[in-house]
Design a protein around this nucleic acid. Structure first.
Lengths: 184, 184
DNA sequence: AAGTTTTCCACCTATGTGTTAAAC
DNA sequence: GAGTTTAACACATAGGTGGAAAAC
């Protein structure tokens, strides 16, 4: 997962479906990201390899889903997406983004708290869920070309980098087409 | 103020500066819009004139500033802008926008509530402030050309309609310039 | 020297403007 | 008919992508 100084979304976004909640009660839904192990990695010979002990971790922010608080009924009515959570490697970040170390491995976590209010969070019981398949390594530049291509093919914001059938980028071609269309 | 089926922001936005709050206490800041009188209007001979009795009003939504709740200190640290409030004439609106009648006169209101939580709002005391200079008439198409021009000259999203010094629109010209720059 | 991070960029999505002509 | 509303449009702002080269 790419992290930048200015903040980068996770892609694909963390998305969950909830069931078994009390329809009338109010809940806050949260996410955080914790170190998955105590190593630093490097990508070498097309493989991630351990490259030493992990650097110190910054305190991790608890990201509150912006629809919080909402009723169990509202949360269960559709999938809940955390697409606005942002990652950064800037240890001085003032936006409240999640600060990670590049070349380290991380595990997102999901929390459900029965609470009306952010003030009650510290005294409330958390139900925490971990999905191991969402583990990732933070980078400042892609290491694995296949990951890059997966992102390009699936992230709508990267459409400009997709290939046409014959293997060439389509961008210049379409800009030219647009020009012709407007001036002939 | 223009209102549309899909929802339209107010421009200029309602903007206030707060003082005298308890720095440590938490407040919710709210806005709503109420009928200013009981008339329907028409724009005739370059003047707004009464054109009969008002149509029935839809229930008015209380718009909660998205930064709510926050401390007095946070609210007082900078001007508070309600630029995301949206107006509509669609009586079936499901977005929670403020539903107004076209050709009717309205008065925005501003409310400060000392409360931690949306749930406490109904039991809380409101301090309500009205600034008569923010009164407006809702329309679906501009009636007064001077108002149109004021909006064009000041709203960044309407920059495409601004005139150059010689009185012509600048848009085509700049598109052509951009083209030359890219291909020479 | 080699690996990692930063900055600037073109290209994209998403959404806020008034205009225009058609619809009501 | 005359006045009002709607829908499609070009042109903006705002901000999310990876690429490339410079900087570290």
């Amino acid at each position: 997962m790419v992290i930048t100084k200015s903040g980068r979304r996770m892609f694909p976004a963390f998305k969950v479906r909830c069931s078994g909640l009390d329809r009338k009660a109010r809940y806050m839904l949260l996410m955080d990201i914790v170190a998955a192990d105590d190593y630093r990695y490097k990508f070498h010979n097309s493989r991630w390899m351990v490259a030493g002990k992990a650097d110190p971790e910054m305190p991790k922010r608890m990201y509150i889903h912006p629809d919080s608080p909402a009723t169990g009924e509202q949360w269960m009515s559709k999938a809940v997406t955390f697409h606005k959570l942002k990652l950064t490697n800037n240890i001085s970040d003032k936006h409240g983004f999640t600060i990670l170390n590049s070349m380290h491995k991380y595990q997102p976590r999901f929390h459900i708290v029965r609470a009306n209010d952010i003030l009650k969070l510290p005294y409330s019981t958390f139900k925490t869920y971990v999905f191991p398949e969402t583990e990732f390594i933070a980078v400042t530049a892609y290491q694995n070309e296949k990951i890059t291509q997966l992102k390009i093919d699936n992230n709508p914001f990267a459409k400009g980098f997709r290939h046409t059938g014959n293997g060439r980028r389509e961008k210049r071609y379409f800009f030219f087409q647009k020009f012709i269309f407007r001036f002939i």
